[in-house]
Structure formats: C-alpha cells, structure tokens
C-alpha cells in the first residue's frame, strides 16, 4: 500500500496525517517532512496514525530522530496508532518519550 503524509500547520502545532505503509522505501520522504516540522520549531507535533497500516523500524527511526531534534519539553503526540504499531514503538522504549492517544477526539 502506498504511503502518503500531509502536514497542516495551525499556529505552533504541526499535524501530520499518515496513510498507507511507512517502510524503508517511504522513510526518507517521511523523514524530510518531519525534519521540516522540527525546523519550524513547533510547540507540538501531532501524528494522525489511524490510517497508517504499517510502520517499519525505519519509519520509527525517523520519529525518534525527529523527536531528538525538537527542543526539549515540546510534545510529540501519536494519535490512533494500531496495536501492532504501538508494539513496535514499545520495543524501542520510545513510548516513554511520546504521548500515545487513542483517537483524534481525545
């Protein structure tokens, strides 16, 4: 399934909606997008993941790297991630670094 990511900026919040498979092939494109968001020094980065079918380790590395580049104390929020994606995140201990929320309504 092809991957796409779109970013919306509202004041100092960047919201990125992910769809499809985030794997090693799509990781560089995603990396560019999150780098752009961190470059804007946003206060909060929200990833809408309910339409993300798969996230590989390469995709996760982009997230971890992006979080490292965000100024300390800013939030990275993952919304609506599927259980298997959450499992991948937990294997890296990254769940201690981000806010994982069930849905956009939360």
């Amino acid at each position: 399934m092809s991957f796409s990511a779109t970013m919306r900026l509202d004041d100092d919040v960047a919201t990125i909606r992910l769809t499809g498979d985030l794997d090693a092939r799509s990781a560089p494109e995603f990396n560019e997008l999150v780098n752009e968001a961190t470059g804007l020094q946003v206060n909060r980065m929200v990833l809408i993941m309910d339409e993300l079918a798969y996230m590989s380790s390469a995709g996760l590395r982009c997230l971890v790297f992006a979080h490292q580049k965000m100024p300390p104390g800013r939030d990275l929020v993952l919304v609506g991630a599927r259980p298997e994606v959450v499992e991948t995140i937990k294997l890296t201990g990254f769940d201690r670094s981000v806010l994982i929320e069930q849905s956009t309504e939360a």
Partner: peptide, 26 residues
C-alpha cells in the same frame, strides 16, 4: 532499540530525563 524488521539491536546515545518522560538521544 530493538529493530524487529532487521533483527538487530542498537543503542541510543543516551536519554535526557524529565520527570517521568525521557527524550531519546538517538
């Protein structure tokens, strides 16, 4: 960092601790 796709392990440079949360320094 347990990388299931590649079946390898790597180690973060470190972490910065802020109360209960931590920033991974990848």
């Amino acid at each position: 960092f347990v990388d299931r796709d590649e079946d390898v392990v790597y180690w973060y440079h470190g972490i910065e601790v802020n109360g209960d949360s931590e920033r991974k320094l990848f």
